[in-house]
Amino acid sequence: MAIRPTAIDEIVHDFEHAYQDAVHARVRITSAGLAYIALTIRHHLPTATKIAVQVDSMTLTAVHSPDEVLWKAGDGRDFDNVATIHVCPLLTDVLTFGRDEEALDDLGWDKADGNPGVYTATLPRHLFTVDCTTYGPYAADPVPDTWNAHDPIRVTRATAEQIAHDLNTHDAESGLTAAWDGLNLVFTWDRRYRDEPGSQTVTPEPDGRYRIGGLWPWMEWTRRADKA
């Protein structure tokens, strides 16, 4: 029996919708996983800012601070056991969802010079959620001491995509939506959200980061806040 054209359209639509959901789920898992890894490492190495990872074997090879290499695989320090027992299983979980080069590039991971298969990732120090929600956590650049909840945070393209997806999926009736126009992220609202309809366009800065804020209050994320 031939499949009805409308049934084919429905199947294609369902597939595309499921695929996009999977892409956003991968971004969320990998971003939240890196945040979890950062918390685990900094419990033992508080000044850690970056890690190096052998992607194919999904192993941690080094931990860096801004000034020095804090740890290298097999150097005999106490952190060897932490890396093996705690960090590497987390890395396996994270990279299972996104270890191809395109996925890692999208997440802001960098290829290590002169080390094939090794990527470096900056450990997030500041994690945010939308106030009074469980969205995120969203990794952002450090904010100044004068920052307040309505100020913007700076995020990668992948994180900006996740913010837009969460807004459109979970707050569809709020009157505020987000859509991509090429490289620009456009927020649009109607009278359900503010007294006057309007829009805000966020353009990428020279380093590719997006400065998002002013449309809702941010809150710094903690595991306690996420469970509240």
Rank of each mutant, 00 (worst) to 15 (best):
F15A: 14
A18L: 15
V27A: 08
I29T: 13
L34V: 12
I37A: 10
R42L: 08
P46T: 08
P46M: 08
T49C: 12
I51D: 04
I51L: 08
D56M: 02
S57N: 04
D75C: 09
D75P: 03
G76L: 06
F79Q: 04
D80F: 08
N81K: 14
V87P: 04
P89R: 03
L90C: 06
L91K: 01
L104V: 02
L107P: 00
W109G: 00
G117F: 01
T120L: 03
H126N: 08
F128Y: 05
T129F: 00
C132V: 04
G136R: 00
P137E: 03
A139P: 06
A139N: 06
D141K: 06
D145R: 10
T146F: 10
W147Y: 09
D151R: 10
R157D: 12
A158E: 07
A158H: 05
A160V: 12
A160S: 12
Q162N: 07
I163G: 00
T169S: 13
D171T: 11
A172G: 02
S174L: 10
T177P: 01
A179R: 13
A179S: 11
D181A: 14
L183N: 14
W189E: 12
Y193R: 07
P197V: 14
R211G: 07
G214H: 04
G214M: 05
E220H: 05
